[in-house]
Write a protein that binds this DNA or RNA. Structure first.
Lengths: 198, 198
DNA sequence: AACTATACTGAGGACGTCTCAGCTTGGATG
DNA sequence: CATCCAAGCTGAGACGTCCTCAGTATAGTT
């Protein structure tokens, strides 16, 4: 899906509609957590005590359900970026935000892939949120670069590649071995400014 | 699948069996290239001019088909590591191998995920090849570390996390925007030895 | 109480995975 | 060359999932 209006699920008008909408969302969060973004929609509907058609009424695509299920968490992330923008130590702000971003990107298996797609595809439910994240991250990056703490030639796109990579490694890892903290530390070493000899 | 003998497809005994085996493999490579590792097996069988049961006879699981389809390429990678081990510039050897590894890991969408799983799960068709790659990469890493060119505290597991991350970014990228070369350069900056001030 | 926009239901078509009972045949054997 | 059988092939069918839509129910308004 490259074109078309992204469907951002909106709260239904009728009381029973809102009840079901919320129940589906709750069931979806649980199912995504357990089975990843490819969790069975029929099962989600059943868990929510609703027929499959009702799920599709509220969330016409899987992506729209994922978007709704992750909207709040990602909004938090954007808000946090804004708060950190005024931090006196911009490198610390950036690195702290990166850690939080990786955590959010890997809320459940498959999410980071959806977000990575949405980042550059406007016809996608999560595109708006991804765009907001992009701005938030870019601001923190610019600040750290202005302070001479991060190499000037790093772009925001590249930063998000690193974040996505770290999140993907995290979602792949078995519960006991999370490679992402170390990954992020190495990435940070790679992007911080240093005196070049040659 | 965590336990059980990994199925390594072996060349069938009879001539018709070998013919079909090869046809299926050829069709699978084409289909994986086009549709990723989740390509329809029924379609692959049809393209190979074979009934679905025949495909399952030779490749009882999707993972076993992926393994067979990628075996040669990954064997090349292992062989290349052995050749590079005698290179006078061990950092250059390592970085060259890393580039090649990322290319192979992202032969088609979904492959890097399968390989990442196989790396630490012995009950998996690709585990043997992954293990060989792990050794090859670890040797190059050790050599670069012995020469003082790469930070001593980097483990082979961490190196593979970086490689996988880069490959994942590459497989996500649209054809025109491949973030992996830059990703790899940044990673390399992160892992090379440097004089620490503090 | 009547009305209607909103919402719900669930059967059904399309497609995918995987199995297995029955059929076919390559190649070995005398 | 005729026989034989292990290796191989077939495709219907059970099952799970996605997604649609014609028919039905009801919340909220008048």
């Amino acid at each position: 899906m490259t074109t078309g209006t992204p469907h951002i699920a909106q709260r239904p008008r009728r009381a029973d509609g809102r009840r079901n909408y919320d129940a589906i969302l709750a069931a979806a969060r649980k199912a995504f957590e357990a089975d990843g973004s490819e969790a069975s929609l029929e099962n989600i509907a059943a868990q929510a005590g609703v027929a499959i058609g009702t799920l599709y009424r509220h969330f016409p695509t899987r992506a729209s359900l994922v978007e709704a299920a992750t909207r709040d968490g990602l909004a938090d992330l954007v808000a946090h970026a804004e708060r950190l923008a005024s931090c006196p130590d911009p490198l610390r702000a950036l690195s702290e935000w990166m850690e939080q971003a990786v955590r959010h990107f890997s809320t459940f298996r498959g999410l980071v892939g959806i977000l990575a797609q949405s980042m550059y595809d406007e016809g996608t439910p999560s595109h708006a949120m991804c765009s907001a994240m992009h701005h938030g991250g870019a601001d923190l990056l610019r600040a750290a670069q202005a302070a001479g703490r991060v190499r000037a030639d790093l772009t925001a796109d590249e930063l998000f590649d690193l974040l996505s990579g770290a999140a993907w490694v995290r979602e792949q890892s078995l519960p006991d071995r999370d490679g992402s903290p170390r990954f992020l530390r190495l990435a940070l070493e790679g992007i911080t400014a240093r005196d070049r000899e040659s």
